[in-house]
Design a protein around this nucleic acid. Structure first.
Lengths: 127, 127
DNA sequence: ATTGTAATTGCAAATCTTTGCATATTATAC
DNA sequence: GTATAATATGCAAAGATTTGCAATTACAAT
């Protein structure tokens, strides 16, 4: 596997960021360092990194899917549809569930960043 | 809630279809009936229908997210990353899991069409 | 029926993302 | 090191999706 300059720049952008970023946001931030970079290059690099499992892509209910660096410490989210509040799960319970699915289906599960949607307690009260 | 002509046409398109459809595919099919319809209208209607819980939207690993009519009989998928093979779960085990999440978090879970990714047994052997 | 209000639609333009192709870069084998 | 093959990049163009705004349509209350 070759290591390209853009790949490294994308990694840095993702690491320097607490939140998840959309493809366009990543392109904007990469452009600060590599001002001549073409959007298509960033989009293609992201696609490659997702395919290689270095980066996860998820629909978090926002206007576009978001990307995040995959780490050794998987986590998952529960997002409130009404107010956007985000809960983060540690992997424990989720991976038990995924392990069970794996056992029953024979599939080797690769999902590493699950996003569930719901309505949080506060928003439930408001109805 | 008012019922628009486009909403009904989209429902018919989704019902007459076994598979999941992308927004663009839905637009193409709606245009057969309503030839003058604007793409933006279809995209906005889909967004509305998702927001109202009539339609689910999921990333199934394809080039774009896909839409499906929500029914009383929820189901979920396990998709092979390598060959695209799709397994369909009945709601049983998944809803147990979601129920548990609901109990632990207080969130009322609205996720009605979960998609997990993995590598199927056949593709595992090929490595 | 008429009026007032809110939701829906079409149009045009903007924005975001993808694709085809030629060039450049990197890795591999000799 | 040189040749060869594979991968990555930029550019331009095409395609998909979103947005702003004005006009239309549906609904509710009178």
């Amino acid at each position: 596997m070759r290591s390209s300059s853009i790949t490294n720049t994308i990694f840095k952008v993702l690491e320097g960021q607490e939140d998840h970023l959309t493809a366009k946001e990543i392109y904007e931030k990469v452009k600060v360092t590599l001002s001549a970079v073409d959007p298509s290059t960033v989009y293609r690099s992201l696609e490659r990194m997702v395919h290689q499992g270095q980066v996860s892509v998820s629909d978090m209910g926002g206007p576009a899917v978001v990307y995040e660096r995959v780490t050794r410490d998987p986590h998952h989210h529960l997002v409130c549809e009404k107010c956007g509040k985000k809960l983060t799960f540690k992997d424990g319970q989720i991976s038990d569930f995924l392990g069970q699915v794996q056992k029953e289906t024979g599939f080797q599960i690769t999902t590493n960043h699950l996003v569930l949607f719901g309505v949080c307690p506060d928003c439930q009260k408001k109805n």
